[in-house]
Simulated scan of single mutants.
Amino acid sequence: MERSELVELLSTEGLRLLDSLPPYETEKDVLRMVSDLRKQGHSPGLVAAVLTQAKLRRKAVGKFGDFASRMLFTEAGLEQATRLAVAARHAGRFRAAGLRRVADLGCGIGGDALALAALELEVTAVEADEVTAAIAAFNLAPFPTATVEHRRAEDVDLRDIDGVFLDPARRTAGHTQTERLTDPDDYTPSLGFAYELATGRSVGLKLGPGFDRDLIPSTAEAQWVSVDGQVVELGLWFGALARPDIHRAALVVRGDAGHELVAEADSDDEETGPLGEYLYEPDGAVIRARLIGDLARRIDGRMLADGIAYITADEPVETPFAAGFRVLETLPFAERDLRRALRDRGIGTLEIKKRGVDIDPAALRKRLALSGDRAATLVLTRVAGRHTALLAERL
């Protein structure tokens, strides 16, 4: 979004027009609305701006729920924004630590600042990009305890601030079609700035879930977060925001509920053992946090093979930290024999999961030429050092 587009969008005419648009589902709906709005005399720039916002609002429902219909976005800002369910948990940390005045440095479109302000904390939201800062100001306007500053994070006076939250930009500059940055020194603000700030301060730092674990300071609490099965972030917490004696945590959010595994350090894997009747695939947050061994012990299970994140057990266990499967039988691993076995069992719908084997599930599914009216899960992995195909059903 260019500055000129934002000016048109934030006009009285632009906001009224945006709020008046009916929802659309197809490209045909968009073409019809463009034609209707142009006939009503609206400029091409304004029409493009409001339709883009209508599309982004619809896309944002997954992250912001009902709030999305009252917010503005950029494409890149929405992609990088924290989901409201996770932002609320960030904000809860600050409130629980007694930190009332919070600086959100690199606030983007204001997702985390919104959650902080909703808990009536005083929030100074700072954003270096002018257009994004203006959008954050619009999104935070309903909250009297929130202010937005258009400036670099490095230039903010923090003397009256109790705690800091940073969500460094991890993509190239721009509002659309940005690219992911791989060097933490290229983040905005940089990782070095964030770590220096965390020395002697209460700081929360949001990073990508694949962040290099070797760069995690020993003083931080590292919490990997998954939402509905997708690992969405790594949070590093310092000072009063870090919980005592916790350095590794896996937070699994499903719907409105959150479940957490915590430990002082990476857990040792449980011993390997024979394949049982049940197989468990740990949630991605548990895997990233390296708490698979703790989970195995919690469900009275054992590792299926060294270095492979599957747990096997003899009894069914309900756990939010893993997907469970009942093993029906072991099938031939050779592709020709596997195709015949699946055909003989009438399996036409197949979920393929794999760990420890070099196979492309999508390409394999196509080659298997499935037909039949039964559904199943195929797990391709190693058992006792051998490539193995397991036919299973989800618990």
Rank of each mutant, 00 (worst) to 15 (best):
M1H: 04
E5G: 10
L9W: 01
L9V: 00
G14K: 00
L15A: 05
L17M: 09
S20M: 04
P22M: 03
Y24V: 08
K28L: 11
L31P: 00
R32V: 12
V34N: 01
V34C: 05
L37F: 05
Q40C: 02
P44N: 13
G45A: 14
A48K: 15
V50L: 07
L51E: 02
L51F: 04
Q53L: 07
A54K: 05
R58K: 12
R58A: 13
G65C: 08
A68M: 07
F73P: 06
E75K: 08
L78W: 01
R83E: 13
L84Y: 13
A91D: 03
F94L: 03
F94S: 01
A97C: 00
R100N: 05
L105R: 05
C107I: 09
G108T: 11
L119R: 10
T124A: 14
V126C: 08
V126R: 09
V126M: 09
D129G: 01
L140K: 03
A141I: 07
T145C: 09
T145W: 00
R152T: 01
A153L: 10
V156G: 01
R159F: 14
R170E: 00
R170V: 01
T172K: 13
G174E: 13
T178H: 03
P189A: 05
L191M: 03
Y195F: 15
E196W: 13
V203A: 03
V203S: 02
D212Q: 05
D212F: 02
I216M: 12
P217L: 11
A220W: 10
E221C: 07
A240D: 11
I246V: 13
H247K: 09
V252P: 05
R254S: 13
H259C: 09
V262R: 12
A263R: 08
E264T: 07
E264S: 12
D266G: 06
E270I: 06
L275N: 02
Y278S: 11
E281C: 14
A285L: 09
I299F: 05
L304I: 00
A305D: 00
G307C: 04
I308Q: 04
T312K: 07
A313M: 06
D314E: 15
T319R: 04
P320K: 04
P320I: 05
G324M: 14
E329L: 06
P332W: 15
P332T: 15
F333Q: 15
A334T: 06
L342F: 08
L342V: 02
R345H: 04
R345M: 05
R345P: 05
I347A: 05
G348L: 07
T349K: 10
E351S: 14
K354L: 11
R355I: 01
V357G: 07
I359G: 03
I359E: 01
P361Q: 08
A362P: 09
R365E: 12
A369Q: 10
S371D: 12
R374L: 15
A375L: 10
L378V: 00
V379G: 00
L380S: 00
A384W: 14
G385K: 14
G385I: 13
G385E: 13
R386D: 14
H387V: 06
L391P: 00
E393G: 11
R394M: 10
L395Y: 11
